[in-house]
Amino acid sequence: MIIRQNNIEVGDINSEEDYKINNRKEILENSLFFDLEHYIYKKPICVGVFGCCYFNKEKHKICVTQYMIENEKDSIEILYFIKDYFYEMIRKYKKKYIITFSGNNDFTVIKYLFNKYNISCKVLESFVNIDLQKKYEKQEKVSIGLKALEKKFNILRKSEVLSGQNLAKTFGRIVKDSDYINRMPNDKKERILLYNEQDVVSLFYIYLNWDKVLNSQLIGAN
Score class of each variant (00 low, 15 high):
residue 49 V to Y: 01
residue 16 E to W: 09
residue 185 P to R: 14
residue 115 N to V: 07
residue 45 I to K: 09
residue 186 N to A: 15
residue 53 C to H: 07
residue 194 L to K: 11
residue 127 F to L: 02
residue 112 Y to H: 10
residue 69 I to V: 08
residue 5 Q to F: 10
residue 217 Q to K: 15
residue 187 D to Y: 02
residue 119 I to G: 05
residue 43 K to F: 08
residue 174 I to T: 05
residue 155 I to Q: 00
residue 56 N to H: 12
residue 84 D to Q: 06
residue 106 D to A: 13
residue 29 E to L: 02
residue 127 F to E: 00
residue 170 T to N: 09
residue 136 Y to Q: 06
residue 38 H to F: 10
residue 206 I to P: 01
residue 192 I to M: 09
residue 114 F to W: 01
residue 78 I to T: 00
residue 101 F to E: 00
residue 170 T to I: 11
residue 144 I to E: 10
residue 119 I to T: 02
residue 75 S to L: 05
residue 134 K to Y: 11
residue 130 I to Y: 00
residue 207 Y to N: 05
residue 179 D to F: 14
residue 179 D to S: 10
residue 90 I to R: 13
residue 168 A to W: 03
residue 220 G to W: 05
residue 204 F to L: 00
residue 59 K to H: 10
residue 152 K to L: 00
residue 30 N to R: 01
residue 130 I to E: 00
residue 132 L to M: 05
residue 75 S to V: 02
residue 26 E to V: 12
residue 70 E to A: 12
residue 177 D to E: 14
residue 144 I to Q: 10
residue 10 V to G: 07
residue 57 K to C: 04
residue 207 Y to K: 01
residue 103 G to R: 08
residue 105 N to K: 14
residue 120 S to G: 13
residue 32 L to M: 07
residue 19 Y to I: 08
residue 83 K to Y: 00
residue 137 E to H: 08
residue 8 I to D: 00
residue 134 K to I: 12
residue 188 K to Y: 13
residue 58 E to I: 08
residue 219 I to D: 12
residue 177 D to A: 02
residue 100 T to A: 09
residue 160 E to K: 13
residue 107 F to Y: 15
residue 168 A to V: 04
residue 74 D to V: 08
residue 152 K to E: 15
residue 80 Y to S: 05
residue 12 D to L: 08
residue 78 I to C: 08
residue 100 T to M: 06
residue 79 L to W: 03
residue 135 K to Q: 11
residue 153 F to R: 00
residue 171 F to A: 06
residue 153 F to C: 06
residue 212 K to Y: 12
residue 44 P to T: 12
residue 27 I to H: 07
residue 72 E to P: 04
residue 33 F to E: 01
residue 44 P to R: 06
residue 208 L to D: 02
residue 73 K to A: 09
residue 21 I to S: 08
residue 181 I to L: 09
residue 211 D to K: 14
residue 167 L to Y: 04
residue 158 K to E: 13
residue 62 I to T: 02
residue 129 N to A: 02
residue 116 K to P: 05
residue 183 R to V: 15
residue 101 F to K: 02
residue 195 Y to I: 14
residue 17 E to W: 07
residue 194 L to S: 13
residue 78 I to V: 12
residue 220 G to P: 03
residue 59 K to Y: 02
residue 211 D to M: 10
residue 177 D to F: 10
residue 157 R to T: 13
residue 102 S to C: 13
residue 23 N to E: 14
residue 28 L to C: 10
residue 122 K to I: 15
residue 185 P to W: 12
residue 62 I to Y: 06
residue 216 S to P: 06
residue 133 Q to R: 14
residue 171 F to M: 09
residue 128 V to W: 01
residue 66 Q to D: 05
residue 43 K to Y: 13
residue 183 R to T: 08
residue 205 Y to E: 09
residue 133 Q to N: 13
residue 152 K to G: 08
residue 221 A to L: 03
residue 36 L to K: 04
residue 157 R to S: 09
residue 160 E to A: 14
residue 54 Y to V: 09
residue 135 K to T: 08
residue 41 Y to Q: 09
residue 215 N to A: 14
residue 112 Y to D: 09
residue 214 L to K: 05
residue 193 L to Q: 02
